[in-house]
Simulated assay, not measured.
Amino acid sequence: MPNFATHADRGASGSLRFPAHTIDGLAGTSFKHQHLPSILADEGRDSGFFEVHAENYMGAGGPPHAALTRIREDYPVSLHGVCMSIGGPQPLDKTHLGRFAGLVERYEPALVSEHLAWSTHNTTYYNDLLPLPYTEATLRRVAEHIDEVQEAIGRPLLLENPSSYLLFEESTMSETAFIREIVRSTDCGLLLDVNNVFVSATNHGFSALDYLSDYPLEHVGEIHLAGHAQQQDDEGDLLLIDSHDAPVADAVWKLFDIVIGRRGPIPTLIEWDSAIPDWPVLKAEAKAAQAILDRHAALRLERIHARA
């Protein structure tokens, strides 16, 4: 079974610049600078990891880098890109890619990920992760972009499934089939966002369980969990928004439990990016995820002992 949590970049001497903290089977949270004093003072905090958005650290230095360096000394870090526009029709921005690769080298993250989406047009960067049609032409373009990123960073990239609010009539394959083909052609890994699955399934009226049954779980190296918001579309029907501003919903916890039962305990991240709560609230969400990971790890160990 692939393990995407064993990669780290080494300096010219061949040695790691930061401690090589393990991330396997751990639950983590988004790192927010306002939580740093609480994190450092929280001596009773269980060991976990933190994920950061790459675009917040593309400057040369300053307080953001000082805070992240302090966190990286004591915890594993997952680097998550949001503006690479891997699904976009135009070539990747070489400057942006170079900065992204520089962060991978600088912080030696345990995991590196990006979205199956597009977010740029010419020189404009949008504040949205926009969907793309699932066609052979799109497949070739996305695969070329992933190959380019993986060549630049020197390691596998984890590709995240999108949350979606519309479907393209020109699509010729399902999202899960598209993702399987991407993995086959690029050897990338996957970041499974369980909340995105639930949001898309609700918005488009398909079964989240059927989606997960068709999803290549064996290639998943990280899981995202997040809260979502409920709205109504123009016709008054329920519309879910991947808002990252609330606790994880009960239905998403249930899907996560099913996924971990099938895939095994892998790094799991609680995303909370707006209406950010105090540190104890975010910590409690991560603790709930860790309890599910630990329970399935114990069950797997029991089955191994039973067969021995």
Rank of each mutant, 00 (worst) to 15 (best):
G28S: 09
F49R: 07
A246C: 09
E235T: 15
A152I: 09
G189T: 03
V199T: 07
L240F: 08
N195H: 11
L238I: 14
H35I: 03
A12G: 02
Y215A: 00
L212C: 03
D9H: 15
V194M: 04
L212K: 01
S85C: 11
N203S: 05
V52L: 07
H115M: 03
H204K: 00
H33R: 15
L238R: 14
D234G: 14
E105A: 15
L225W: 03
R45W: 04
D257R: 12
S47Y: 13
G205A: 10
S200H: 04
N56S: 05
Y165V: 01
V82K: 05
F198G: 01
R303T: 15
D234Q: 14
V104T: 08
L282M: 15
I23S: 01
T123Q: 13
F178Q: 03
G98V: 03
E169Y: 05
I223C: 06
L129E: 02
H35E: 03
H96A: 12
D214Q: 05
I23N: 01
L240A: 01
A286W: 08
I276G: 12
P280Q: 11
L111E: 05
S15N: 14
A117M: 04
Q34W: 05
L166G: 06
E51Y: 02
N127W: 07
L103E: 12
D74P: 03
W279F: 15
V82E: 09
L92C: 05
L293M: 11
L129S: 02
V281T: 15
I146A: 04
L92I: 09
E55S: 08
F178D: 02
R10S: 08
R45F: 04
L255E: 11
G236H: 08
T22F: 04
G62T: 07
G48Y: 06
